[in-house]
Design a protein around this nucleic acid. Structure first.
Lengths: 234, 234
DNA sequence: ACAAAAGTGTTTTGAATACACCCATGG
DNA sequence: CCATGGGTGTATTCAAAACACTTTTGT
């Protein structure tokens, strides 16, 4: 029972903007394409949506293929569909951004793909409109992270408050008052203090914390910002 | 020069969630489908993305076809792509929401399509996943309207403060303190007071205002909410 | 000792909220 | 003249921002 004419079928792809945090700056994971066109140029990891597969599933599959990771925080962002975005084919691409804890990314980077982390401030020229994709994902990340504590997805099990501060500073490219930041975070009940201290990065040492997953999951909470009571949740 | 195999090409559609405001409640414009499948059932207005056309252009085309309007505020929202979302075909649909001033919508509604405005609180059952589409667009509208004054797109040239208040109350389904709302709006410099009063809806009458388009366009401003200085703009 | 980062206490600022009260007018 | 919605003035609250100061420890 086909009702529609198939003559305007289009290739539909997903591209993954994979964000990571190395403790210092926000990074994005890029690959060197091993196929034509644009072979050997830097690009986002992507793939085609298969006939029996939802775009979300395609994005997860593509992410797993590169990183080996599953159950990763992913979010749909913009669709890029200009007819001329690829010179030789008509491909519409749905972008997803993923947030991963780089410590879980144990894949040998250059085994299958020549993949590499690059700082968001300074990554190589990418094929097609992939730079725009990153820019738009970054913008969305900023909006979302201001409303919800999703940046914790980028952190390992144990982390220190100065590390989170550095992460937020990296995402927004701004300097916070670390003292106020620390207090605000503590008062949110989102994090649980551990015994251990990180002595690597300072003389005094900063306490490690872990995420209070109950509060993290249950409460779709306002976080860094003041939100009026009528603001829509989730 | 074709590089990709075309065997996984997919039908790509756009669906338009068209919001309007009749002075009382937020409305959505729906059509009765005049083609199979699901002929004569209520649905969003949609169409297929053509090979030479971007999704944005397709959405504008579809909107114009129904309403006759161009240069309308539109925004991409979610993609719906579950393989089983349409029972008989594989169609991935990109949603757009549009905000239109219903007074400009002069098209004779039932001429080509049997179109009708329905209140968002109470519209008929729709085909496929169109209810989800509306819900997701509504959510996005709420978020966006809290950050930017986009709801003015729904208002005619001349409007009163009580009208805007009603609009915001409709969007968030909440009651504001009209006195504070009014003051906040005035202090934003977004609106310019006119001489004339609307005497229809109250004995005292409410002054008409017009949008200060310079401020509206130029300033991507925080509006109803307190926004920290580091919050990403636009 | 002292530099340097971690963290606490306290004050100031300003937006959001609450609400008393005046204004204009049609019935 | 009074009920009704429009609108102003003023007080309160509470989080954000600012910043003085203490704590810890490697060098």
């Amino acid at each position: 029972m086909e009702y529609y004419r198939e003559d305007s079928a289009i290739l539909l792809a997903v591209d993954c903007i994979i964000f990571g945090f190395n403790g210092e700056s926000l990074q994005v994971l890029l690959i060197k394409r091993d196929f034509e066109p644009e072979r050997n140029k830097w690009s986002l990891m992507g793939g085609f949506v298969q006939p029996d597969e939802s775009p979300e599933l395609a994005a997860s599959r593509v992410l797993k293929k590169l990183t080996g990771l599953e159950n990763v925080y992913m979010e749909q962002c913009s669709v890029f569909g200009d007819p001329k975005r690829e010179p030789n084919s008509r491909v519409v691409s749905i972008c997803y951004f993923a947030l991963i804890d780089t410590q879980k990314y144990t894949h040998i980077l250059s085994e299958e793909y020549e993949a590499n982390w690059f700082p968001l401030q300074n990554y190589p020229t990418l094929i097609f409109d992939h730079d725009q994709m990153i820019a738009s994902a970054q913008h969305r990340l900023r909006i979302k992270a201001a409303l919800y504590p999703i940046l914790f997805e980028l952190l390992p099990e144990k982390f220190t408050i100065p590390q989170i501060a550095a992460l937020y500073e990296g995402v927004y490219n701004i300097e916070f008052d670390k003292r106020n930041f620390s207090r605000k975070l503590l008062s949110s009940d989102l994090i649980i203090k551990l015994e251990e201290k990180d002595k690597e990065n300072s003389k005094k040492g900063a306490f490690y914390f872990k995420l209070n997953t109950a509060i993290y999951k249950e409460k779709i909470m306002s976080f860094l910002r003041y939100l009026p009571s009528w603001f829509p949740e989730n």
